[in-house]
């Protein structure tokens, strides 16, 4: 669906260097702190900013030759941009009808009613949650093959986040060839939705793993300096000095459970992996 190879973009104080792939039928998560480069990746894919070097293919075509027809197959949510706040939902319906060949007006309005969004009110008067819901509903209402969602849940409470994630699950269930690239700095959003995850830190992809593998095989070892000197370090990816000794990240939890029953082992979470991968020292 999407492949980025060594894509670079340089600014004065920030450089992006990114390779990633979103496979057909996959929900791929992009996680990183604010300012890590997530939005830059989305903007490069959409041609809103130009890349300095590298290759991007979208729908098996070089991105340079993608056209209006390819954009018909994209559903997009941008974190900092949307329809003009001076328009209402009733205003944007005919706009979407004329822009998208497969715009499903009745499904769109059904979702609008389901979430209780006011059709005559100006969008700028909407709450953060209402705006986010409208953005997602707009992105999924024209039979897109690929959703590009940059921080679609930013600023939402837990209930609203769950509602949005449910909408995305429904979208994926309707057609198994559809794909989603979704970014967030809230890891729990991605943990339950994504098939695989990329982590971005200071413009670089520092980690890629299937979500299942991450949750089952990754763990944190909390060990004393003595245990640290004795332990087999082959499967330790990163370690960090703590006041009790060392905190180590491994991707072979079972190996340490079986061979070192006395050490404290905590299941890996996305947040822990991020913290270790972006801050820990390599062994």
């Amino acid at each position: 669906m999407l492949k980025m190879e060594h894509v670079r973009k340089n600014y004065k104080s920030f450089s992006l260097n990114c390779s990633l792939e979103v496979k057909s039928g996959y929900v791929t998560g992009l996680i990183g702190k604010n300012g890590a480069g997530k939005s830059t990746i989305f903007k490069i894919i959409l041609g809103l900013i130009t890349k300095d070097s590298g290759r991007i293919s979208l729908f098996d075509k070089d991105i340079q030759i993608t056209d209006d027809q390819d954009k018909q197959n994209l559903g997009v949510v941008l974190s900092d941009s949307g329809f003009s706040g001076y328009l209402s939902i009733n205003d944007i319906v005919p706009v979407l009808e004329h822009l998208y060949e497969h715009f499903d007006k009745s499904a769109f309005l059904k979702q609008i009613q389901r979430f209780g969004l006011p059709q005559n009110q100006k969008i700028k008067e909407f709450s953060t949650g209402m705006k986010a819901k409208l953005k997602i509903i707009t992105a999924i209402s024209h039979n897109a093959k690929f959703l590009l969602l940059d921080e679609p849940t930013a600023g939402l409470d837990v209930t609203a986040r769950d509602e949005l994630l449910d909408m995305l699950r429904e979208f994926m269930e309707q057609d198994e060839t559809r794909s989603i690239l979704i970014s967030s700095h809230v890891s729990t959003d991605l943990e339950t939705l994504c098939d695989d995850l990329y982590m971005i830190h200071e413009g670089n992809i520092i980690f890629h793993e299937d979500t299942d593998v991450l949750l089952s095989d990754y763990a944190l070892l909390k060990i004393t300096p003595q245990q640290y000197s004795d332990i087999d370090k082959r499967y330790i990816l990163k370690s960090k000095i703590e006041n009790y000794g060392y905190r180590c990240l491994t991707n072979q939890k079972q190996y340490y459970l079986e061979n070192y029953p006395k050490i404290t082992i905590e299941n890996g979470t996305i947040d822990q992996v991020i913290t270790m991968m972006s801050g820990g020292a390599e062994i």
């Binding site: 959409l46 209006d68 994209l74 997009v76 941009s81 329809f83 003009s84 706040g85 001076y86």
Partner: peptide, 18 residues
């Protein structure tokens, strides 16, 4: 100006608009 307001152009050009 309306299109530029609140960085609206970014979303506008993600739609099927050249």
């Amino acid at each position: 100006s309306y299109d530029e307001f609140d960085n609206g152009n970014a979303f506008l050009f993600s739609l099927p608009i050249t």
